[in-house]
């Protein structure tokens, strides 16, 4: 049984009003425990709406979301419990910080879960460790921290709820390359150690290709592709056609293939590309 099953999911904003707009259209897919899924798509492709239906912030207009064999809307009063199991880190999450200290802010979610003080304390410490926050920072006001540190406090706030599924919407937006690399590495380490499920939304194919096992591509509210990372990148040209930016390296490989060279195009790292291109040179030399 998959951990999360999405069946014929559709979502329409303001049905029956002037603002009516279908954002997600008949999406079905299953997510297994331990999956690391990258989600890409344009602004307005429905990906933000899609992830917000997964933790019950939006109720699907049609279709079902089945978590561990149970429809999450079976008992609408218990929807809060779904939100504890499907944790969501929004874009620019640092804008939601409000407590006196970073520690208290991280504890907000666990507190809402009704955990004991000692349990909360332990979870806060663990979560802070995952995102690389030094203990001395925890006593500070979140507003005194640097931009990158604030972001980490906010992410820790969701991790501390120890959700089975962690969803992150553009967690690296606005960070510099160094900050981005560190954060992605931390998310990746969190996924490895906890062996749980992570969904990561990003505009950057480079980022996604580096850490995701599977990729979900959304286009105009529809599921355009959902497959292993390598298989999705093999469709690089199609992705470009729907206006997505593919990694520079993939573009180079497609360029070589267009000139009649037999290279694979499911390549997205410099390492892979070097190996592939060196192969090209050797047979030529012999001839």
């Amino acid at each position: 049984m998959p951990l999360l099953e999405i069946k014929d999911l559709s979502f329409t904003y303001g049905p029956g009003t002037v603002f009516e707009k279908k954002a997600v259209n008949n999406v079905s897919l299953s997510i297994e425990k331990g999956d690391f899924i990258g989600i890409i798509g344009h602004t307005g492709s429905g990906k933000s709406t899609f992830i917000q239906t997964l933790n019950g912030l939006y109720k699907p207009t049609e279709g079902q979301i089945i978590l561990d064999g149970k429809d999450i809307w079976e008992n609408p009063k218990k929807i809060r419990n779904v939100r504890f199991r499907v944790g969501m880190v929004f874009q620019y999450p640092e804008y939601q910080l409000f407590e006196e200290t970073a520690e208290k802010d991280i504890a907000y979610g666990p507190k809402n879960m009704g955990l004991s003080d000692s349990e909360i304390k332990e979870r806060v410490m663990k979560a802070a460790k995952f995102v690389g926050l030094k203990p001395e920072l925890l006593k500070k006001s979140p507003f005194e921290l640097s931009g990158g540190e604030k972001r980490r406090v906010a992410i820790a706030g969701v991790i501390a709820m120890e959700p089975d599924i962690l969803i992150l919407d553009e967690p690296t937006a606005g960070l510099d390359p160094n900050g981005r690399d560190i954060l992605l590495a931390q998310i990746s380490a969190y996924h490895r150690e906890k062996e749980n499920t992570v969904l990561l939304v990003s505009h950057s194919m480079e980022d996604i290709s580096r850490i995701a096992d599977k990729i979900l591509v959304m286009n105009k509210g529809n599921m355009f592709a959902f497959d292993d990372t390598k298989k999705v990148f093999a469709r690089g040209e199609e992705l470009e056609k729907i206006g997505l930016r593919i990694p520079e390296i993939t573009k180079i490989m497609i360029g070589l293939k267009d000139r009649g060279y037999n290279v694979s195009t499911d390549i997205y790292s410099v390492e892979q590309a070097v190996n592939e291109i060196i192969k090209l040179k050797k047979p030529n030399r012999k001839g």
Binding site: E206, P247, K251, L256
Partner: peptide, 29 residues
């Protein structure tokens, strides 16, 4: 560093000659 430049740099150490550093995919191809 742009990926095209990184690739060129790596290829350079594998025996490719680079007269001018490519900064985008087209130049690199």
């Amino acid at each position: 560093v742009p990926q095209a430049a990184q690739l060129a740099y790596r290829l350079n150490s594998c025996g490719f000659k680079i007269d001018e550093l490519p900064l985008n995919a087209d130049d690199c191809v």
